[in-house]
């Protein structure tokens, strides 16, 4: 089942008098349950593409249809609500809320969704256990390692039961062991719970795990290989 359809996507940035064509006419379809890596050199447009798919950035031209909704037609507040309900984000720098514990960080999005206290607490603990942090639910981010923080970020991304998860270079700040651990968790979630993951990455270990690899350069798709 297709959950994302990108049609003729273009993004042009205006930097002074220079126009930077970051994404050039990309067409793409992502199916439910994919484990896809978007790879390419720095400045190739992969993060821009991911931001537009995530509704964080507007395309200059083209359409992004998620679950039959053209997100370009949504108002800013509707788009915010859409992101909260449909998209999970994992950032390179984890971006957890430092004053909240791991459990509270995971609960946060469910709180925005208006879930009950019990439902929030139960799901947060369950997700943290799934990412192997059942013992650290009450730890603040500053007490967790980079790998552990990124696992909390994955649990947070899953909390809202999104249609897919966008992970922008999730392993860039992690050591080999943490990377392997994180990838195992994400692959397991993908395999067992059919959760769709889309990564932008430079990391060969991520690319090796991915079942579909889309290579971008100069804003264009150079190759799209399904293993």
């Amino acid at each position: 089942m297709k959950i994302i359809e990108v049609k003729n996507l273009n993004k042009i940035y205006h930097e002074g008098e220079i126009n930077v064509h970051a994404v050039r006419g990309i067409d793409l379809v992502i199916e439910q349950g994919e484990f896809t890596a978007i790879v390419g050199p720095s400045g190739s447009g992969k993060t821009t593409l991911l931001n537009m798919i995530g509704g964080l950035d507007n395309p200059t031209e083209g359409e992004i249809v998620i679950d039959e909704i053209n997100i370009g037609n949504l108002k800013s507040s509707q788009l915010t609500d859409f992101r909260m309900k449909n998209i999970g984000f994992v950032f390179q720098a984890y971006n957890l809320i430092p004053v909240l514990t791991a459990k509270e960080n995971v609960e946060f999005i469910m709180h925005l969704q208006g879930k009950s206290k019990k439902e929030r607490a139960d799901r947060a603990i369950q997700l943290l256990e799934e990412v192997g942090l059942g013992e650290r639910v009450n730890s603040r981010p500053s007490k967790l390692s980079g790998g552990q923080q990124q696992r909390v970020a994955v649990a947070r991304a899953l909390a809202s039961k999104p249609k897919f998860i966008l992970a922008d270079e999730p392993t860039a700040n992690l050591d080999s062991e943490s990377t392997a651990n994180l990838l195992d968790i994400m692959e397991k979630l993908n395999r067992e719970e059919n959760i769709t993951f889309i990564f932008s990455t430079h990391d060969a270990r991520v690319v090796n795990k991915a079942r579909r690899v889309i290579t971008i350069d100069d804003g264009k798709i150079m190759s799209d290989i399904t293993k």
């Binding site: 507040s77 992101r83 984000f89 950032f91 720098a93 971006n95 999005i109 925005l112």
Partner: peptide, 16 residues
């Protein structure tokens, strides 16, 4: 700024 950007990205409304 980065944290506020994250909050906006994950769906925290402007009013919140």
């Amino acid at each position: 700024i980065k944290e506020i950007g994250m909050l906006m990205a994950v769906g925290m409304s402007k009013i919140r």
